[in-house]
């Protein structure tokens, strides 16, 4: 199971952050050549990220680069430089239509061929950041085999919508739902927008709980401190793990007796329940929990 609970923004022209962005243990780090880099430093950031990706071992952390729009003066150079540097994923900013994805897909294919790289090696992430993107999202998510995920960018979205972000996030609800549905339908990872107020930990937790409940796979984060909080919320609790174990035991016992359905504490255990339980245990495992130890602790409790 591949995790994309956290995608950490790293300003592309900041060597102190770039040199070891992976130490904060985000599932993905996203080097930004776009909004965090001024127009006078686009070349400098491109060189910096190119060299960093070629030299620095980011270990198991997924590397993502957000390039400038292919319709800007910087996008084409960004794309070629990054294909040569070979990050795991290129994230396209402000995707509005399937053509945006298809254009990038085609250019990537040409570059891969020219450079003798494996076909479709570099994956794509789409970012939906305005109303047009939301309206087209189900076609966007189907536009290329390279797509592995879709991200929501709420800051630009609310500006485009002529509103601002509220505490409850009602203005984002439909967009989040649309993106989530389209992403799920296409089998992609779906990750939520950043939460800008780094010092509002309670507000951040509330928002992560909300988007986890909605079904998002994770969240873009702007501060390393937010990584641990997202992971904590996404990591199954001991109660959830033990419940999942009981579900699995119940269904295994039922299967031995030739039945596909079991009951646990008076509730029916059928296929979707079992699938959720398996997902919980797998998530616990890939989150780095030591399941043997949890069993012990539960036994003592």
């Amino acid at each position: 199971m591949k995790l994309r609970r956290t995608m950490l923004y790293v300003p592309g022209n900041n060597p102190n952050m770039v040199k070891d962005a992976h130490i904060y243990r985000a599932d993905s780090v996203m080097f930004d050549l776009e909004d965090s880099v001024s127009v006078h430093e686009k070349d400098a950031a491109r060189f910096l990220i190119f060299r960093a990706l070629k030299c620095i071992d980011y270990e198991n952390t997924e590397t993502v680069v957000r390039i400038n729009s292919l319709h800007s003066p910087y996008g084409e150079d960004d794309l070629e430089a990054m294909v040569r540097a070979r990050p795991d994923v290129i994230r396209l900013p402000k995707t509005e239509s399937p053509e945006d994805i298809m254009e990038a897909d085609e250019k990537l294919g040409i570059l891969e061929k020219k450079l003798g790289l494996p076909k479709n090696e570099i994956k794509l992430f789409a970012a939906i950041e305005n109303a047009r993107g939301v309206v087209n999202v189900s076609r966007i998510t189907e536009a290329s085999d390279r797509l592995v995920g879709v991200a929501f960018g709420a800051e630009d979205f609310v500006t485009n919508l002529h509103t601002t972000r509220s505490r409850e996030g009602t203005e984002l609800f439909t967009a989040r739902q649309e993106i989530l549905l389209a992403g799920r339908a296409a089998g992609l990872h779906v990750i939520d927008s950043v939460f800008a107020d780094v010092n509002d930990e309670a507000g951040f937790r509330r928002e992560v709980e909300l988007i986890k409940g909605m079904g998002f796979d994770g969240k873009s984060v702007i501060n390393p401190r937010q990584v641990g909080i997202v992971h904590e919320i996404y990591t199954p609790s001991i109660e959830e793990i033990n419940h999942a174990r009981r579900v699995i035991r119940a269904i295994e016992a039922a299967e031995e007796e030739g039945s596909g359905v079991a009951t646990l504490n008076g509730r029916m255990v059928d296929k979707p329940v079992v699938e959720r339980a398996r997902r919980t245990l797998e998530l616990a495992h890939v989150s780095g929990l030591y399941l043997d130890e949890i069993q012990e602790e539960a036994a003592h409790a």
């Binding site: 130490i23 904060y24 501060n223 390393p224 401190r225 641990g228």
Partner: peptide, 9 residues
């Protein structure tokens, strides 16, 4: 400083 905070955690 996120690095200091990480070490402290």
């Amino acid at each position: 400083n996120p690095r200091d905070i990480l070490i402290a955690e």
